[in-house]
């Protein structure tokens, strides 16, 4: 190994010496041991790196940043999901894929007539696809369900829907709104016993086959377990990457006619 090669490799050698045992640097360090000129270069290099790193560590951090992070408050909201062409294309792809997979994943009666409205199953896949996509973010961070619903209402999104008794009073993580097939969709997220649980809602007439009013229906899509029901003029989906038994447990005490009475 010539000095030039050794120098290039040693550019990644940390001044703290934490890489001394790393095999990647062995040959270059052997070259250093044989070559006093190279050794002097490395010593100066490490001194520079150490000094520069120390200077960067002095860069002040805004005093409010930590509190803002802990409070979960966003200072600036990025552009909405529905305004991003790439995101729309991604959802369109998910929905298109859903058209072909729905019959296999969620067998059911054939639609009576051709329609442009999305199916509930397409909504389910699109909603999960949105959450899993890189563009997902909660625009309102709050542990208060009431605040979350108030924020959703202010943003023209479905709000005021009830939740299974097991989730009533649970602190939320936050909420957001996005758009599917031209309809605003609400999303409220919770963390329950370490599991993230999401509740999506949209207008019942936005889908051609909304879930029933009187009882929840369950579906599995990959590792996503889903419970769906309708309430008044809204249709809702509770979903999480947990076994279906957990979802059924959350919904088990649910008498939809009573327990899921709207907040409004």
């Amino acid at each position: 190994m010539d000095p030039r090669e050794a120098k290039e490799i040693l550019q990644g050698y940390r001044p703290s010496g934490a890489d001394a045992e790393d095999e990647h640097f062995r040959e270059a360090l052997e070259a250093v041991a044989r070559d006093p000129e190279l050794a002097a270069w490395l010593e100066e290099e490490r001194a520079f790196d150490e000094g520069f790193a120390a200077k960067l560590a002095e860069v002040p951090v805004p005093p409010q940043l930590k509190e803002d992070i802990l409070a979960g408050e966003k200072v600036v909201e990025f552009p909405g999901f529905w305004r991003r062409p790439a995101a729309l294309a991604a959802v369109a792809a998910v929905l298109l894929a859903g058209v072909f997979s729905v019959a296999v994943l969620f067998p059911g009666p054939e639609p009576a007539a051709a329609t442009t409205a999305m199916s509930w199953q397409q909504f389910q896949q699109g909603a999960v696809g949105y959450y899993e996509g890189n563009t997902f973010q909660l625009k309102k961070m709050t542990p208060s369900q009431e605040e979350a619903h108030a924020w959703l209402a202010r943003h023209g999104a479905p709000s005021g829907f009830g939740l299974p008794p097991a989730m009533e009073g649970q602190p939320s993580m936050g909420c957001t709104v996005f758009e599917m097939d031209g309809h605003p969709v609400s999303l409220v997220c919770f963390k329950m016993d370490g599991d993230l649980v999401h509740v999506f809602g949209l207008r019942r007439d936005a889908v051609e086959n909304p879930p029933p009013l009187d009882k929840p229906v369950f579906a599995q899509d990959g590792d996503w377990s889903m419970a769906s029901w309708s309430e008044g003029d809204l249709s809702l989906m509770l979903t999480s990457q947990v076994p279906m038994s957990r979802i059924r447990q959350l919904m088990s005490e649910t008498d939809l006619t009573a327990a899921l009475a709207p907040r409004r």
Binding site: P62, D68, V75
Partner: peptide, 9 residues
């Protein structure tokens, strides 16, 4: 700040 907050979110 936004990027840092978004990362923790």
């Amino acid at each position: 700040c936004d990027l840092t907050q978004q990362t923790f979110y």
